[in-house]
Structure formats: structure tokens, C-alpha cells
Design a protein around this nucleic acid. Structure first.
Length: 164
DNA sequence: GCCAACGTTGGC
DNA sequence: GCCAACGTTGGC
């Protein structure tokens, strides 16, 4: 039971919600709603804690990659979009007395000085087992190890080749 | 726009 | 409870 923050990677399609969109939100924070995958839901419910650190990843982007760092500001609570028939994430089978889907709040910390593309991630031997570089990995919230976190931050520094 | 890989659904 | 069909994700 360490007090160390956990590390995560969240994917967002910039056409739907980009890093810039997050930074434009009041307080540079938002509700991370619309998650409709049980594995991701379980991470939200069980593991994502206030203060955890997040890599903000643009998927379906040219190029795809990590643009910035965010932080968990509020832990799991029910996602209201599941009860809204007008919403694209509506789930008729979810019981308001026992909501099936959860969300959390995150806030932008800072952009990476150097965008770290998916290609960069794949090139880094230290990241060979990172979830996001695995073929066919579609999970939109992924755990990141502290080693991977440190490596990505290093790659995201202003002079990526200056590593000694 | 293509399509491989994956998660979910539903018939049986 | 199996598994084929389907819809979605997301890199390319």
C-alpha cells in the first residue's frame, strides 16, 4: 500500500476531445466520461486515485502520441451520460440504483516540451512491453509503470537526443 | 478508407 | 457456456 501515485495512459481522439480542448476547459479540468469498457471501468472503480499521474495520448491522430501530462483530481463517481437517452453513450441496461459506468475527473498539468509519437515509443527498447505499443491494444485507459513513466518524460524533454 | 484485432452480443 | 457474427478501435 504505497503512497506513490499510480501512473496511467488515457487515449483521446483529438477530433473528439484534444489536449487543447482539455486546456481550454474551466480550471483546465474535466470529467472523463463515456468509458464503456469493463476493464477500463474496473481501473476507474478500483485503482485510479486522486493524485495519480496521467499520460495524455492522442489516438487516431496524425501522428498518434503523447502530448501532455495530467493528474487525477476526483475519484470514481457515476457517469451521468449512461442515463441520458440523448447521449451517444446511453446505456438502457444500466440501473440508476447501481450505475454500471463510472467516470473520474482529471486536470491538465503541462504539455510535453517534445511530443512523443507512437513511433518514438515503439523505438524505445525500454518501452517494448508498454501496453500502448502492443499490437491490437484498444484499451482506452492503461496502467503505466513508474519506469515507463520516467522514460516517457525523458523522451518528452526539450532535447530528446541530449541523453547522456 | 482499409482492415486486423479485439470486445460484446445473442442464438443455440 | 460456446462461438459466430457483429460493431468498434485505431494504426496505417
Amino acid at each position: 500500500m504505497s503512497k506513490q501515485p499510480h501512473y496511467w495512459l488515457v487515449k483521446s481522439e483529438p477530433g473528439a476531445f484534444s489536449w487543447d480542448d482539455l486546456c481550454a476547459c474551466p480550471g483546465r479540468r474535466t470529467h472523463w466520461d463515456g468509458i464503456r469498457n469493463y476493464q477500463a471501468r474496473n481501473f476507474i472503480r478500483d485503482d485510479i486515485k486522486r493524485g495519480d499521474q496521467i499520460l495524455f495520448y492522442h489516438s487516431n491522430a496524425k501522428p498518434a502520441g503523447i502530448v501532455g501530462l495530467a493528474e487525477v483530481l476526483r475519484e470514481a463517481y457515476p457517469d451521468p451520460t449512461q442515463f441520458d437517452p440523448e447521449d451517444g453513450h446511453y446505456d438502457a441496461k444500466s440501473d440508476p440504483a447501481a450505475p454500471r459506468w463510472l467516470m473520474f475527473d482529471l486536470g491538465a498539468r503541462r504539455a510535453l516540451a517534445n511530443f512523443v509519437s507512437l513511433e518514438d515509443l515503439k523505438q524505445a527498447p525500454a518501452l517494448a512491453s508498454m501496453a500502448v505499443v502492443q499490437r491490437g491494444q484498444r484499451l482506452s485507459i492503461q496502467p503505466v509503470t513508474s519506469t515507463e513513466w520516467a522514460q516517457v518524460l525523458d523522451m518528452g524533454k526539450a532535447q530528446p537526443k541530449a541523453k547522456k
